[in-house]
């Protein structure tokens, strides 16, 4: 079995990003995953324990005083050291803003081929082939780095697989402290989770609101339906620009791309940029007053009607049938 390095992204408070499950699942499809993580000195044991839950049996842990202070560089250094030690066929990194920085630098430092935002991974002989969903899922492409080592960023939520827990064992990874210029993180705050709602990127169900929701107060209606269905809350750019909801809920070309089982668009016209972020959803439902809204062209079930009458009634129906 070939080795596939999996880069672990921790939040400032030390939590593991849930998207790690996708990285591990993709790594399994071409080899055996080995986690690589950087922690502050003394934190090795506690992080290793938690990584078993993601199905990682083996983890390389680098301790560095720079963790939490230097942007990207400790993770880059750990991956480069791990690659030198284990000669992996591929290095997988989450396609997050931070993950992309790490991937960019690792790919250059290792002279590897960089595959971006993959949704699938397979081996063809000795080649590693990554699959991409392009222009909002209108195309599926596959690409390969050929004989080079592959560094790939992985779309979180692209497998939907639940990992089977194992017991993780850790070995220490030495990284040197020689420094290249780096940005220093002087403050880091995690967004407060406002509810128990699932995370948008990986949610199986998403309820999104658009400009027609009309106000920040109106968005409570979107949230109530989301809660009734156990869904995450999304929004169109128009709703975000109008200030109804914060930007991290934005679905679409310049926001998050989602591929849930169910996507419900409330008062969203369905501009091409929004569709690019949600049209790979398995089932799409749209409610919109405007019968000519382009969202209806891709909806499996469309209701021409006022969201303020349809949605409250729908919430009642859903709760009654539970």
């Amino acid at each position: 079995m070939t080795t596939v390095l999996v880069s672990i992204e921790l939040t400032p408070s030390g939590d593991v990003r849930p998207g790690l499950a996708d990285l591990v699942a993709h790594a399994r499809s071409i080899g055996s995953p080995v986690g690589v993580v950087t922690v502050a000195p003394g934190d090795s044991a506690s992080v290793t324990e938690r990584l078993g839950a993601f199905g990682l049996a083996e983890v390389l842990v680098a301790e560095s005083a720079a963790v939490g202070a230097a942007d990207a560089e400790p993770r880059v250094r750990a991956l480069v050291a791990a690659a030198a030690a284990r000669n992996p066929t591929a290095v997988l990194i989450a396609n997050t803003v931070r993950g992309r920085d790490v991937a960019a630098r690792v790919a250059v430092r290792l002279d590897a081929g960089l595959l971006l935002d993959i949704v699938g991974l397979h081996a063809e002989g000795k080649r590693v082939v990554g699959e991409h969903s392009v222009f909002g899922g209108a195309y599926l492409t596959a690409s390969t780095a050929g004989d080079r080592m592959t560094v790939a960023t992985v779309r979180e939520g692209s497998t939907g697989e639940q990992p089977s827990p194992v017991t993780a064992s850790a070995s220490a990874l030495e990284i040197d402290d020689t420094t290249v210029p780096t940005a220093v993180i002087t403050e880091a705050t995690e967004h407060a989770r406002r509810s128990e709602r699932p995370e948008l990127r990986t949610a199986e169900r998403v309820v999104s609101g658009g400009r027609a929701v009309g106000s920040a107060e109106g968005f409570e209606l979107v949230e109530r339906l989301a809660d009734a269905l156990g869904a995450a809350v999304g929004a169109s750019r128009a709703a975000v620009d109008a200030g109804y909801i914060s930007q991290d809920h934005q679905v679409g070309q310049t926001g998050v791309s989602v591929s849930p089982e169910l996507y419900i668009a409330l008062g969203i016209s369905g501009a091409i940029q929004h569709r690019a972020g949600m049209q790979t959803a398995k089932t799409i439902v749209a409610v919109n007053k405007d019968e000519t809204a382009p969202i209806f062209e891709i909806a499996d079930f469309g209701v021409v009607g006022d969201i303020f009458t349809v949605v409250p009634a729908l919430i009642a129906e859903v709760e009654a049938r539970r």
């Binding site: 942007d71 993180i185 002087t186 991290d248």
Partner: peptide
């Protein structure tokens, strides 16, 4: 990705 940061370089 759920984190607010201030970076200095």
């Amino acid at each position: 990705d759920g984190v607010d940061e201030v970076l200095r370089l």
